[in-house]
Computed example of a mutant assay.
Amino acid sequence: MHVLSSRILLRPRDPEVSRDFYGRTLGLAVYREFGTGPERGTVYFLGGGFLEVSGRSDAPPSETLRLWMQVADCAEAYEEVSRSGAVVLRPPVQEPWGLIEMWIADPDGHRIVLTEVPADHPLRYRP
């Protein structure tokens, strides 16, 4: 199989609230929009992938789904999302494996980890 593109599909309880969260609170850039009305689809750039917010679902968030987003500076991201009113589940902490991670939740309760790879971490630093 040769994958050409991919995206995560998110079916929120309230699409407008979720679009506001991903677009305004997190500041994700819009890749494309389709359809009309409150349940129209919006696809956001998500680093090397995409996040599509479309449709609607009353199902609770799955414990098996997490969004992982690498950011340049976790402390700065913490300040930004806190000012924007995001639910911060855990402020930035340097993990035993060396990454700095913080956790937030989207309006439906989906957990999102914001991760910083420090300059001296093996993922970035090669002696």
Rank of each mutant, 00 (worst) to 15 (best):
L28N: 08
L28G: 03
L28Y: 13
A29M: 11
V30T: 15
Y31E: 15
R32M: 02
E33Q: 13
E33P: 01
F34W: 15
T36C: 04
T36K: 12
T36Y: 11
G37D: 07
G37K: 06
G37Y: 06
G37A: 10
P38G: 15
P38W: 03
P38Q: 11
E39F: 14
R40Q: 03
G41T: 09
T42R: 09
T42M: 04
T42A: 06
V43T: 08
V43Q: 13
V43A: 08
V43E: 14
Y44K: 03
Y44P: 09
Y44Q: 05
F45C: 06
F45S: 05
F45L: 14
G49F: 00
G49Q: 08
F50E: 09
F50G: 01
F50H: 10
L51Q: 12
L51W: 11
L51N: 09
E52K: 01
E52G: 11
E52F: 04
V53T: 05
S54W: 13
S54Y: 12
G55K: 07
R56K: 15
R56P: 05
S57Q: 04
S57K: 02
D58V: 09
D58M: 10
A59H: 01
A59K: 02
A59C: 03
P60L: 03
P60T: 07
P60E: 07
P61L: 03
